[in-house]
Amino acid sequence: MSAAAKSVWLHGGVITLLFALQFVLPAYHHGNLARIMVLAVYAMGYNMLFGYTGLLSLGHALFFAAGMYGLGLTIAFLDFAPSPALLSGIISALIVSAVVGFLALRTTGVAFMIVTLMFAQAGFLTILLFGEYTRGDEGFVIQQPERVLAGIDLTTPGNRYFAALILFSVCLIITARVVQTPFGKVLIAIRENEDRARMLGYDVLRHKLIAVIISGTMSGAAGAAYALLFGYVGASFAAVQYSIFPLLWVLLGGAGTTIGPLVGTIFMFYLIDLSSGLTSAYMLIAGVTLVLLTLFARQGLVGELRKRALPWLP
């Protein structure tokens, strides 16, 4: 079987499995998985830049928040219906990521991390500064009537799950497709050896910028979807820990693998959910697990699987 065929089977299989799970999961896990799929979209967006292009951003919360507020504020103040609001969220993230990418890509390495961190911090403070509209740290609720997308009430568990699944599937397919295209191969080449890629005649900066935009837009789509599906818009999603989360999810699941972000997000979600039932030091448990994984499974869960057993994993 060719790599492309395997990719189709793998991703089709993952989507089918997620589709089937909604019929068997108990209510709690059903709800969790809907949330996890949205967050996994965020992780996939992050993975496009970190996992495939090799750029470590510490400011992705800005893109997530751009999507979230792009949707939330247009609903709250311009009376947008959910579909144009969703589009507004995605476009906001696209614009923000294009601007941030354009400026931040003048730097590399640690400087890039710091510049993206600063941008995200500036974004966070901007949300607080415009508290009149954003209600700052407190945030605001998107009420049930405003969450009916094209006649589908996204506040019911089944519809919410389905909406999350559709978004997740679209982004998974985009990711799987992009990394198979010549463009995606160049991103991988930049990750592996930027100088070499440049000396093969590729415009490294342009490729990186497009990667930032795809990554940021996907992250923003997750932010907009989170607001729409869970009814809350708040500044905490723009805070620094929400820039760290996707990094952790991707590291856990496997950077530069298509399904790693989903696996990492599920793993981390249940790690916290289960350990918080045992002790209030659950972040310590999460931290120790992360350290162990980075020591003994450097490539993340899916990455190790690829290394040890399934080298064809995309």
């Binding site: 991988i188 080449a189 592996e192 050896n193 100088d195 070499r196 000396m199």
Partner: peptide, 13 residues
């Protein structure tokens, strides 16, 4: 086209 003095390839590919 340019080949590097110090080998520069994509080792993981």
């Amino acid at each position: 086209a340019y080949t590097f003095q110090i080998t520069s390839i994509f080792a993981k590919l």
